[in-house]
Design a protein around this nucleic acid. Structure first.
Length: 416
DNA sequence: TAGGCCATCTGGTCCT
DNA sequence: AGGACCAGATGGCCTA
């Protein structure tokens, strides 16, 4: 079957090109109506910068990613709110609709299933009938004959009126061949388009809080988290002050799946620890503002690995508690890049043990949501309510702690 | 094994 | 006619 082999060749070539090309590292130009791509690709400026360094064989300095990011905070925010935000708002609307659709689908699931069953029965019977009427090997010939029948000159068959519109030309062998070539080209373009979209999504993954090379957020979770992140940043700008951490986490986790919520909460709590120890270096008990933690909607997701099921401490969300696993962890996993988010600071370069102890010896008692009152408190490392099975290897979660410069920036960011 | 996620193919629609 | 975009279908992979 030459057609098949050709298709495979085209496919292989496309895949090869997609694999060999550097993941779209720079925002690319696009045609009209690709607002989604543009929005996603617009998030890629930092990774583009890093790729640029790589291309030119420049070793990324330890602080490059962070410095770039935080120097780019103003740029980033201005871009967000002048260029990207309109697109991402549409994205957010889409995600909102998607969520509502999910909920509606849940409600109507039984009805749909019944409907699908009926359709399937009708479809199978009609297919069986069509199979009974002829046995052609070539699908194109089937289509060709169907077209000719549909547009046939003979009218009045079964009293049906003659179809209007331009009469379809007979499919010659040449036209069939061209059609196949066109189809293969369209497939190739579609693959490229999806690869571009995925590259943009990868770039988006890198700029949302919590990024892991080894365990990627799913597409939908990436979009949801990005939406929440943007909304949270917007809220910060509007209020002109730093929100309390729990509220911030709440904003980020709204609508996320449980595993992603756990991941984000874990990342955020690590940052929270640093944040709090910066604020309360004496380890004094720190009470968060009253903030009922409730996430209005989430769906279950079994895709994510247990790494995502974990978090960085006994931060309790949705009635679950998460244990800390970072007493003695690998802080220098190569799998994780510097974060690009102000809330994800890199701990790759953290080198001092005393530093570590300082920042990770403080544990917080469970963040209880049951009373609408959330409190962090310094406590023992093995806190009650910690689930050992939820303990991740630290390097599996991408959070970033670089101090002190990062925290100055972080605080400055929150204080803006 | 079921379910989630993903890549790919495909046909339809809209636009240039 | 051709390209971009979209959504449905399908099969593979992975995890619980």
């Amino acid at each position: 079957m030459s057609d098949v082999s050709e298709a495979v060749d085209v496919k292989a070539a496309a895949t090869h090109s997609a694999n060999t090309q550097p993941a779209a590292t720079e925002p690319h130009s696009e045609g009209p109506g690709i607002s989604c791509n543009r929005a996603l690709a617009s998030c890629s400026y930092q990774s583009g910068y890093e790729a640029h360094l790589e291309r030119h064989g420049v070793n990324k300095p330890a602080f490059t990613g962070y410095d770039f990011h935080h120097r780019g905070d103003c740029t980033m925010l201005s871009r967000l709110f002048s260029e990207v935000l309109p697109d991402v708002e549409r994205l957010a609307d889409w995600a909102e609709e998607h969520e509502h659709k999910d909920q509606d689908q849940d409600q109507d699931q039984s009805a749909l299933m019944e409907h699908d069953l009926e359709d399937a029965q009708e479809g199978s019977s009609s297919r069986a009938e069509s199979e009974m009427t002829g046995d052609h090997d070539d699908d194109d010939e089937d289509e060709e004959e169907a077209e000719e029948e549909d547009c046939g000159d003979e009218d009045g068959v079964d009293g049906k009126p003659k179809k209007r519109g331009p009469k379809k030309r007979k499919m010659t062998a040449e036209r069939v061949e061209r059609s196949k070539v066109r189809r293969m080209k369209a497939n190739s373009r579609e693959r490229t388009r999806m690869h571009d979209l995925n590259s943009a999504l990868d770039n988006l993954r890198k700029v949302v809080p919590c990024y892991s090379k080894t365990q990627k957020l799913s597409k939908i979770e990436t979009l949801r988290l990005a939406k929440n992140y943007i909304l949270a940043l917007g809220e910060i700008l509007r209020n002109g002050k730093r929100p309390d951490v729990v509220t911030y986490v709440q904003m980020l986790c709204k609508g996320l799946s449980q595993p992603t919520t756990n991941l984000v909460a874990g990342c955020m709590q690590l940052n929270t620890r640093n944040y709090l120890t910066e604020q309360c270096p004496d380890g004094a008990r720190f009470h968060m503002a009253s903030s009922p933690f409730s996430v209005p909607y989430s769906y279950r997701c079994s895709r994510l690995s247990p790494h995502y099921q974990s978090a960085a401490g006994p931060l309790s969300l949705r009635g679950q508690s998460y244990s800390s696993a970072y007493e003695a962890s690998d802080y220098s996993s190569p799998d994780y890049e510097a974060a690009h988010s102000p809330v994800c600071t890199s701990r790759q370069h953290e080198s001092s043990d005393s530093d570590r102890n300082y920042h990770y010896s403080m544990h917080y008692s469970g963040l209880s949501t049951s009373r609408g009152n959330l409190s962090y408190g310094a406590s023992g490392a093995r806190n009650s309510g910690a689930h050992a099975e939820n303990i991740p290897p630290f390097h599996e979660v991408h959070v970033h702690h670089e101090r002190p410069a990062q925290y100055e920036d972080l605080n400055a960011f929150f204080h803006n």
